[in-house]
Write a protein that binds this DNA or RNA. Structure first.
Length: 434
RNA sequence: GGAGGGAUGGCAGAGCGGACGAUUGCGCGGCUCUUGAAAAGCCGUGGGACUUCGGUUCCCGUGGGUUCGAAUCCCACUCCCUCCGCCA
């Protein structure tokens, strides 16, 4: 959530910043009013509480002095004030709850880098990359053998079995076979090793508490997007960002340890409630997919460099894999709620002829850290400071898989995979018909 | 799932319902002594909210309750440890 003090001191600036992402001014004003009410009620309650405590002290003194009549009179007054204090406390709590609910629903302020815009159509393509570009090669020409959608290639080669996946779990739950299954495993191993120099490998749980989902901003706003296990009140994570961000929830870190960087591969679960019927062919949009995620805690000063590092690591993988991609700066209207800035990497899929998001590198400033209460103690002294959180996929395999299969398809129908995966594929970089 | 034990500051570990936001030790920071260091000694060392900057208030796993007053008493829950059962 955003800083309520900033809202209090400069509501105009907050309203202006949030207007860039479509939040009505009235909503900001409502939160400001809730804050004023909550503070007024807190003061009232604390004043009563102070009187009760003072009377309690006097009771003890009167008893000590052996004056039980005076003590009884004080007890009676204190009891009366105690009832008032209880009522005042309930009112204060109501107001604070309303304020918190409202604050949790306010999205983050967009960063300076973030361009204006209402939706995906206003995002800005920053650059493109394709194999051989540095050597002056023109953008790739794709042959007819590459213009085959991955679901057809997958069926042809017996490495993707969407029908049987649907039999087990319903549509949009993919099932990979043979070299297709091994490819996912190879990609995960390859990426984790690539990041191992600077990012600690974590294997987190994939079912998490409501608090864990709330810390990253996935709840309460996006409850419809999450799979929820009612019986145990647990949520299936939509991304490893969720458990990684909460790793140090409620803790105070040492500045010397920052930035702290983590890497995890997990299954990710998304209901895709708002996208029913869209992009349903093949692997374009699935309810479950594997993804390697990079996540970092940093100081405000370190954050831009960490954002750049995560982006360049994701790009390095794409380049290693020989995939054609572009880098997109998201506009204010297309940012997810918690993000201040997001850069998407979109890979080109020749078989379906479109760029498709495979990584989303985001900087949250202290928005998530405030929800999660993650701070660091400044080396120079002074009170603890909220960390900045950042994360990015590197990468989402359910979209890299199609890109590799379509890009690598050869005229004879076999698929050639990039050499960098050879060590993880037992040297078998060509997938042929069974 | 059953039985028992536990949860207090960075760590260890005290804490008969009233002077306890908390004894003490370790750690950490500063100072004295010293050429320097060690040792010794002295001082200081949690977090949050509100504030008219004087203060006020909250936090002893979490949430309720009893009481004029709760770290302390009661109830529920969570987590950790030990043993039993089950199991990959």
């Amino acid at each position: 959530m955003i800083d309520v003090r900033l809202l209090r001191e400069d509501p105009e600036a907050v309203a202006a910043a949030l207007a860039r992402r479509g939040v009505a001014r009235a909503e900001v004003e409502r939160v400001v009013a809730l804050d004023a009410l909550a503070r007024q009620r807190l003061r009232a309650q604390e004043a009563l509480r102070a009187q009760v405590k003072e009377l309690s002290r006097q009771v003890r003194e009167a008893r000590g002095a052996g004056d039980s009549d005076a003590a009884e009179a004080l007890v009676a007054r204190s009891r009366e004030l105690g009832h008032q204090e209880k009522a005042a406390a309930a009112e204060a709590e109501d107001a604070q709850g309303a304020l918190r609910d409202a604050l949790l629903l306010l999205p983050n302020l967009p960063s300076e880098e973030t361009p204006d815009g209402d939706g995906p159509e206003d995002n800005v393509v920053v650059r493109r990359w394709w194999p051989g570009m540095e050597a002056g090669a023109p953008p790739p020409e794709y042959g007819p053998h590459q213009r085959v959608p991955h679901w057809e290639v997958g069926q042809e080669l017996g490495i993707l079995d969407l029908e049987r996946g649907a039999r087990l779990s319903g549509s949009m739950f993919p099932l990979y076979r043979r070299a297709g299954a091994r490819l996912i495993r190879a990609l995960s191993a390859y990426a984790l090793e690539h990041h191992a120099d600077a990012y600690e490998e974590i294997r987190p749980p994939t079912l998490v508490l409501t608090d864990t989902m709330t810390a990253t901003g996935h709840l309460p706003r996006f409850a419809d997007e999450g799979y929820h296990v009612e019986r145990d009140d647990l949520w299936a994570i939509p991304t490893a960002e969720v458990p990684l961000t909460s790793l140090y929830r409620g803790e105070i870190l040492d500045e010397a340890d920052l930035p702290m960087r983590f890497c995890a591969v997990t299954a990710c679960f998304r209901r895709e409630a708002g996208a029913a019927g869209r992009d349903t062919r093949g692997l374009l949009r699935t309810h479950e997919f594997d993804k390697v995620e990079l996540m970092a805690y940093a100081t405000a000063e370190q954050a831009p460099a960490v954002h750049a590092d995560i982006t360049s690591r994701a790009e390095a993988l794409l380049q290693d894999l020989g995939l054609h991609y572009r880098v997109v700066e998201l506009c204010a209207g297309d940012l997810s709620g918690a993000a201040a800035r997001t850069v998407d990497l979109e890979v080109y899929l020749p078989g379906v002829d479109r760029f498709w998001e495979v990584s989303s590198v985001s900087w949250y400033r202290d928005y998530q850290a405030r929800r999660a209460n993650i701070r660091y103690r400044p080396a120079a002294g002074g009170p603890p400071v909220l960390v900045h959180t950042l994360n990015g996929s590197a990468l989402a395999w359910s979209r890299i898989w199609p890109a590799l299969v379509e890009t690598g398809r050869q005229p004879d129908g076999s698929v050639r995979l990039p050499d960098c995966l050879a060590p993880y594929l037992g040297g078998e970089t060509v997938i042929r018909r069974p």
